[in-house]
Design a protein around this nucleic acid. Structure first.
Lengths: 117, 117
DNA sequence: CCGGATCCAAATTGATACTG
DNA sequence: CAGTATCAATTTGGATCCGG
C-alpha cells in the first residue's frame, strides 16, 4: 500500500470482500491496513475509507486503541492534529492480515464465478 | 480440531475473539472451522456453535454455499439428513484462517492485558 | 478548516416458538 | 431433523452539528 487512494476499498476489491473483524468491529481490518505505512491523521484515513461514516471510523479507532492495536497521539499545535499509528501488537497483526489478502487475490476469479451462479 | 465440543467458541477463546467475515457474514469463519474435519450435519454444527441462533446459522450456511465455500447435500432417507462440507475453495481458506488463530493464541496474553486497562 | 459528537433512520442480529 | 416465522434488540449508516 504505497499511498492512500480514494478508491482503495471501494466496490469490488479483494480486501473489501474480506473485511475481518476484531472483537466485533467490522472495519478494523481495513483501518489497520491503512496504517501499515506509518501514522495517519483522522482526515487522511477518511480518504481511503470513504465508505465509512465519521461515526464508525471514530468508533473503530477507539475500539482498536482500547484493545492495544493502535496508539492515538494529539499534538498541541496551532492547527489541531491527531495521528493514529500501529503499536507492536497492531503491527504483528499485519502478517495474518496479509495472508488473508493474498488468499483473496489468488482466488479472486473463483470467488466471482461462485457469486454469479 | 479433533471433535466438536460444546464450549469450543464460547466465552474467551482465541478464535472467537477473531471471527472474520466473508462478505458481511459474521459467523462464516467459525462455521468453516467446524467443517475442517469433514462433513457435518446441521444439528452437529449447532453444538460447537451454540451461541448462534438457528436463523443465523442457516443464513451463514446459505451465504457460504452461495459463495462456493461449502456444499450442501440432502439425502433421501427415512430420517431426514442434510450435510455440509467444504469445497476446494473453502478448504483453501483454512490456511489463512489458521494463521489468524495461531496469531491470536500467540498474542492472547497481550490481548487480555490491553483489554483490562 | 480539523476531529470528532449527536440524533435519527435503516439494516442486521438475536431469542424464542413453531413447522414439514 | 432441519430448518422458518415472528418480533425484540443491537448495530450501522447518514446527515448534521459543534468546539477549538
Amino acid at each position: 500500500m504505497e499511498a492512500l487512494r480514494a478508491d482503495m476499498f471501494e466496490e469490488i476489491c479483494p480486501s473489501s470482500l474480506l473485511p475481518f473483524r476484531i472483537g466485533g468491529d467490522k472495519w478494523a481490518g481495513m483501518v489497520l491496513r491503512c496504517l501499515e505505512d506509518g501514522p495517519r491523521r483522522y482526515s487522511e484515513l477518511r480518504v481511503p475509507l470513504a465508505r465509512i461514516s465519521p461515526k464508525m471510523l471514530t468508533q473503530s479507532l477507539r475500539s482498536l486503541e482500547r484493545d492495544g492495536f493502535i496508539r492515538r497521539t494529539e499534538y498541541a499545535e496551532p492547527v489541531r492534529r491527531v495521528t493514529y499509528e500501529l503499536t507492536g501488537l497492531g503491527r504483528s497483526l499485519l502478517e495474518p492480515l496479509r495472508t488473508f489478502c493474498s488468499w483473496a487475490e489468488e482466488h479472486w476469479d473463483e470467488l466471482l464465478d461462485a457469486r454469479e451462479s
